[in-house]
Design a protein around this nucleic acid. Structure first.
Lengths: 112, 112
DNA sequence: CCAATATTCAACCTAACGGTTAACGATGGA
DNA sequence: TCCATCGTTAACCGTTAGGTTGAATATTGG
């Protein structure tokens, strides 16, 4: 999760993902739109790969990348928890029910 | 967007958000569950604040924080674009239609 | 007024990030 | 075979991140 959000926290990498949403891309193709060295772009691809967002297939001398949406789905699901706060119906009971599966219970009942 | 995903890319800050989902918390209350100095926790709160995820109200000598779900909704919407890849119905036409409002068109039509 | 509390600030450390350039390895094509 | 291409690796650089400690600031309560 850390790695996923960290990977998404960079506009270059987000744009690479957008490119991959249109289909397979080689590292060179992913790098092309950016005013940076291929080596730098290669590092971004590796970051996406380590986050599980990209899978790579070495075809000859080119590395073909494709999107792995799994971690994106997880991130989406994580954010889903907070949907109660931006959708109109933020029912207090509903929020309380969902609070049961929170990360930790160290800051328990309503303080102050 | 960079700041939002970056803020989410740290487990400490994600847990702080979870705490805030249960209601207002002071900086001290947010810091309590963690084995780190208050100063360190204070930095995390500031990071969340700069990302727009937290709003702070100085009440006397305590700083009361509450969740601002706006940026979370934006992040959620950004990820929504990729939902087509993890939901069963990844219709090629649908994907093409959505691709129109992509970040940039530099890597245009299907290469290779 | 004084002391405790809540929080930030400043200085410092180490590690990671994002970028560069240069060299290397492997592949593909003439 | 020779050379251009694709991509990674390594070394380096400046900046940022995340943590510490210690001092400063403001507020509250007695």
């Amino acid at each position: 999760m850390d790695a996923v959000f960290h990977a998404l926290g960079d506009a270059t990498r987000r744009r690479m993902l957008r490119a991959l949403a249109d289909g397979e891309r080689t590292v060179g193709q992913l790098a092309a739109p950016f005013a940076m060295s291929l080596a730098a772009a290669s590092k971004h691809v590796r970051t996406l790969e380590r986050a599980g967002l990209v899978r790579r297939e070495v075809r000859g001398r080119t590395h073909v990348c494709r999107l792995d949406p799994g971690p994106l789905a997880e991130a989406h699901a994580w954010l889903d928890f907070y949907a109660q706060f931006w959708t109109g119906r933020l029912d207090a009971l509903d929020r309380l029910l969902r609070a049961e599966d929170a990360d930790l219970p160290p800051t328990a009942g309503e303080p102050r």
